[in-house]
Amino acid sequence: MRYQTNELAKLAGVSQRTIRFYENEGLLVAQRDPENNYRSFASDQVDRLQQILFYRELGLPLAQIKQILLAPDFNILQALQEQEQALLAQQTRIAGLLALVQRTLDYQKGALIMSDQEKFAAFKAAQVTNNEQAYGPEIRQKYGDAQVERANQQWLARSAAAVQQMQQLEQQVFAGLRQLLGPTTPDLDSSGSQQVFAAHRAWVRLAWGQAKPYSAEAHRGLAAMYAADPRFIKYYDDAAGPGATALLVAIIDHYAR
């Protein structure tokens, strides 16, 4: 079956403008009827739109969706299997958070006792799930399954104070990058750059812990991953401003020696 733009938009529950946007981005391809010159979308484009919406629901940025769908070796069955695993992971994360809310309600009513560790366990488990979903294949390929599993277990066992310290260090990195990103070229030898590096190095040491001893070489390798992955670029640029990721990578390369 073929669908005109308005019909496909109605079928998918999106606007016609959205359909045209995906078409302009090269993600959807319409064909013209030689008899009436009307544009329409075939069944394979219906499947393609479903894939786009799946990936959008999973929170992937448009650039990454294009990279996946326009790859020469794209396989829809493999994509659906990966999406299933990602959605199951989300389901597990939400179930854990719901269970935590229910236990916290009982705790606040005086019906049970909760340790401080229990109060944050589900949040840390959710972060592990999110990291695995977003970066799992890359970090497992780079560091190996055993090391990643050790790091995950270490994170789950980490105290609330340590988690708070990591969050504070990350905010220091963001604030320092924002200050350095101005109308002039940032000075890598400035005290501001040194402070950003020191905060990020401290964050890395806490994040890796005993699972992976810190080294300057490994720190530079992490920076190279930041520079090569659009998800990392979006994360730091969204937090500290356009160009923040490139600046952080340059600072790490400058000082991690």
Rank of each mutant, 00 (worst) to 15 (best):
G221Y: 02
V204E: 05
D187K: 07
S115A: 08
A250L: 02
Q165Y: 03
L88H: 10
I52N: 06
E23T: 14
D189P: 00
G96T: 04
N6H: 14
L169T: 06
N131Y: 14
I251G: 08
E132Q: 14
R20T: 02
T245E: 11
R17I: 10
G209L: 05
M1K: 06
H254W: 04
L60N: 03
P61F: 01
H219P: 03
T245Y: 02
A199M: 08
A224W: 00
A246K: 13
N130L: 12
A246M: 06
D33T: 12
L69S: 04
H219W: 06
I233R: 15
Q64K: 12
L77C: 00
G96E: 09
M166P: 01
G176L: 10
I252W: 04
A160W: 05
N24G: 02
Q81E: 15
Q45G: 06
L80P: 00
A228E: 09
K234N: 09
Q31A: 10
T185M: 11
L58A: 09
A63L: 05
A256P: 09
Q4W: 03
P34W: 11
K212Q: 15
I52C: 05
A228G: 11
L87S: 00
L98C: 07
W155T: 09
S215L: 02
A95S: 11
V148H: 05
A151F: 00
E132A: 12
I139H: 05
K142W: 07
A211T: 01
D237G: 09
R150W: 00
D73T: 14
E149L: 13
G110D: 05
D116M: 06
A121W: 03
E7R: 13
V163S: 10
N152G: 00
Q165T: 13
N75L: 04
Y143A: 08
H219I: 03
L53Y: 02
Y235M: 13
Q164G: 07
A246D: 14
K66S: 11
L180S: 10
Q179A: 11
L53T: 06
Q133L: 12
L180T: 00
S193A: 15
T18H: 02
Q4L: 13
L8M: 13
A157M: 07
N152W: 10
F174S: 01
Q127L: 12
R205M: 15
L80A: 12
T92N: 05
R32N: 04
G241T: 12
F120Q: 13
R93S: 14
V196T: 03
Q78D: 11
L87K: 12
G144Y: 05
A71C: 02
K124N: 08
D145C: 01
A121M: 04
T184F: 00
F41Q: 08
P72C: 08
A89K: 10
A125R: 14
A227T: 01
Q171F: 01
E82V: 02
E23F: 07
Q194Y: 02
L62V: 14
N75P: 04
P186G: 09
E118I: 04
K142F: 09
Q154N: 01
R20D: 01
A175N: 13
S15N: 06
K119S: 08
L100K: 03
M114K: 06
F174N: 05
L105W: 00
G241K: 07
F41W: 15
T5C: 14
D237H: 06
L60E: 03
G59A: 07
R220G: 04
A216G: 08
R150E: 07
W155Y: 10
S115P: 07
T92R: 15
Q133T: 14
Q210G: 05
